[in-house]
Write a protein that binds this DNA or RNA. Structure first.
Lengths: 114, 114
DNA sequence: CGGAATCCGCTATGATACTG
DNA sequence: CAGTATCATAGCGGATTCCG
């Protein structure tokens, strides 16, 4: 069979497992992450408790989990100051900041189309 | 209202329930919708079976559900031709088409940052 | 061919309590 | 203050079968 095994005119790059769009959604998907990113961006620097009060309805479990994942994915930076009581601050990495404009476009699209 | 009752320097518009960014994610979130949109966009017009084969790993249940929701949200158009056997074609609405460039930016961001 | 109807497991999410 | 540790649950997503 000299045939290239593409039965359909559809590309793996678009719909396949490796699609980078899918990866992006894996990272910023879920129920809370985008809102967390936006709140940090809006405030530049935020403390844990601030986020907890700011993101409407989030629980400790989800906030802690989301922050850990965002940090692991290089979107959020965590700084801990060992004062008493402990103070922890979060801010966006440059990588995350470069994502914000796109999210704002998405938001704008939502306002115009929903 | 002389007073804006905000205990935190964080805005409801960003993190609250009404945030349009959240709404967008509700519509195109989930595991398959973005890929479905991209495949339809890439092909202009697609049949159900094509989508089923093109979107890697999707099941009937999810494809049918996703398409119904996308149609209800005004992102895809369904055309049924009562031939024998039945033929059904899907294409993007203008609204969805205006979303594609943003998704491509997101994809580009993913390629550069992940 | 293009779905609908069932049934079901898993994982994301959540409530609550507790700790360094 | 900034989280962990448990335990519980809902609903998303999946496998299979059936239908016009």
């Amino acid at each position: 069979m000299s045939k290239i095994a593409k039965k359909e005119p559809l590309c793996e790059e678009i719909a396949g497992k490796g699609c980078s769009l899918k990866k992006v959604l894996d990272i910023i998907g879920g129920k809370w992450k985008i809102m967390i990113l936006c709140v940090i961006d809006y405030n530049e620097v935020v403390r844990y408790g601030q986020l907890n009060r700011a993101v409407d309805g989030i629980t400790n479990t989800m906030l802690a989990n989301s922050l850990k994942e965002l940090e692991a994915d290089g979107l959020v930076e965590r700084k801990q100051y060992d004062e008493m009581p402990v103070r922890v601050e979060y801010n966006l990495t440059p990588k995350a900041k470069s994502l914000i404009p796109i999210l704002l476009e998405l938001k704008k699209w939502g306002e115009e189309n929903l």
